[in-house]
Simulated assay, not measured.
Amino acid sequence: MKYTKFDAAEFLDSEEAITAYLSAVLEENDPDLLIAALGDIARARGMAKLAEDSGLNRESLYKALRPGAKPRFDTIFRIMKALNINIQAKAMP
């Protein structure tokens, strides 16, 4: 039996799917997982469009969203803004 590699980006085909995915990731409080999820969302929406909308070049985006990257917060903020993603604060239980 042959298996294919799972790619979350293939399933992020609506705003609802993206919101649910990112909400679940944020609940994990794992910065590396957040970077990976933003990379999945970026691929689902298109890196070229994200580069244009964020004002970052594609190479910088790939570097910022690769596994193990430690991008600056302003880079993450620009990416999230370009993806029309808003973070909301809520008290932890």
Rank of each mutant, 00 (worst) to 15 (best):
D53N: 09
M80A: 08
Y3C: 07
L12I: 01
D7S: 13
A48E: 06
K49G: 10
A20L: 13
L33K: 05
R78K: 12
E59Q: 14
D32W: 04
Q88L: 15
D32C: 03
L22M: 10
N57I: 08
E16G: 06
M80L: 11
A69N: 03
A91W: 14
Q88K: 15
K2V: 13
A69L: 06
N57A: 08
G55F: 06
L56P: 06
K5F: 15
S23P: 04
I41Y: 02
K5I: 15
A9W: 02
M92Y: 15
M47K: 07
R78Q: 10
A9Q: 03
E27N: 11
E52S: 07
L56G: 07
L38W: 01
D32R: 01
E59G: 11
E16K: 10
D30V: 00
I18F: 00
A64Q: 08
L50S: 04
G39D: 01
D13M: 13
D32Y: 05
A24M: 08
I85D: 10
L38K: 00
G39L: 02
P67L: 11
Y3F: 12
A20W: 07
K49C: 08
K81H: 07
T75H: 04
P67I: 06
E27V: 04
R43K: 06
M92T: 15
A44T: 01
R72A: 09
